[in-house]
Design a protein around this nucleic acid. Sequence first.
DNA 1: CGAAAAGTTGATCTACATCAACGTGCGTGG
DNA 2: CCACGCACGTTGATGTAGATCAACTTTTCG
Lengths: 255, 255
Amino acid sequence: MQHSLLTREIEVFVELGADEREALEALREEQIELPAESALVVEDAPAHHGFLIEDGWAIRHKSFDDGRRQVVDFALPGDLVGLPAGILQRPDHSVSALTPVRAARFEPEALAETVARRARLAAAVAWIGARQEARLAERIVSLGRRSAYERLAHLLVELWSRLAVRGLADRDSFAMPATQAVLGDALGLSVVHVNRTLHRLREDGLIRLESRTVTILDFDGLARAACFEPGYLHHTSIPERLRRRLDLERDGGRG
Amino acid sequence: MQHSLLTREIEVFVELGADEREALEALREEQIELPAESALVVEDAPAHHGFLIEDGWAIRHKSFDDGRRQVVDFALPGDLVGLPAGILQRPDHSVSALTPVRAARFEPEALAETVARRARLAAAVAWIGARQEARLAERIVSLGRRSAYERLAHLLVELWSRLAVRGLADRDSFAMPATQAVLGDALGLSVVHVNRTLHRLREDGLIRLESRTVTILDFDGLARAACFEPGYLHHTSIPERLRRRLDLERDGGRG
DNA sequence: CGAAAAGTTGATCTACATCAACGTGCGTGG
DNA sequence: CCACGCACGTTGATGTAGATCAACTTTTCG
């Protein structure tokens, strides 16, 4: 894996020139390896970096003083974290490794600068941000209006989909490092209820679950149970109209 | 209000040059006025615009086939909507006017182009996006881990804060055009429960509520009840480090 | 002024939380 | 290599926040 995952991620959507690819590679400040449980970004800590997750899972989460915790999103290989934290004054949530994590660290300001000079990169980053926002919106829908059963089904389909487009899932299964407690914190449920709900999903023949591996036995059934509409994941490329504008930009710009 | 709200909104955080301001003004495609209930963005409709809300309230929401609905966010004067919808292939949620709305319409592609040539503008837009994402994250926390009482208190404080920084709220009150049904759809609660919970907030002497006006009687109490931490709203300006980089960019760039 | 929309209140139901106990796999130290 | 401990998972009993159903009042608006 010589090219960073970031390059690959972006190139799914826009083709990059050699110079653009180089500029991205130059951002990579340091390669880091973190044990499970360690923090990549700490809420309220002023100094912070962005990270590109290259291997392992992380969570973005907020904690209350009284011990309540909410997982805002899962960060999988290929995901960028700490970007908003870098743009805003201080991070308003933490990012912690769920498994051992390998990641590329970079200065958000350097990314901003690099991207500011290259319209196509800027569009790609905006695009990544918009997609993240779409995911959060869908999570709001889950928490607000879906039952525990639907939420869990939905999350499983989402995770599989996100891993699958990156070639990190098998045809019908994937490794699930999150404990039931973490799932509960992501879905706004108690551990006990996550357990019972998983049990029901198994009873209903939708999934199998063994040694931290989820096998989806009935995709249609699971997606139907979840009211899952894949559109919000936006696995497709940047809209034609936008791309055309930016190709113009590229030809007509300083080059 | 000759200058667009967008200009004012951005200038809270970075100073703009005359050219930058002009470029933003040039984006304004058309001024539109919409009655309450009408849609600015329709889920699944391919053609779409971005809008800068100039007056009135709107909601971003998703609807299920079975009638369930979730309000993802409120859009207040000064807010940008339809931006992610413009970047992504198709909008994954709708935006509807809650009251009559005055808004400036623009092509998202034109914004992308304008912004791509001006680092400071790009940073400002990225900054606006990051702030929106922070709001959604906080909403996820509310829905996942806060009680109805806390959620409602939290929302009221948030709305007041957002209106107040824009000079749209009185010292301790604001006009609240959302019905209890809409509040329910935003908070993941039933109308009945919203009603009872509002009642409790009144009983406890935290708010008063008359003719669609919320008066906050006890800010501290309400914020405490909500576990409200204002940080996530990011009403402060762009971090110094980032600003410095972009000022450099401005001096050194093509100009 | 009348009708429809919004708000209010009570009774009842249920999805999920909480409490409690026990099972199971696994890494660590004796 | 066994045994202890601990994190995680599982299951049952019970409690409760909030949903649902139903009726009524008040406000809004054409």
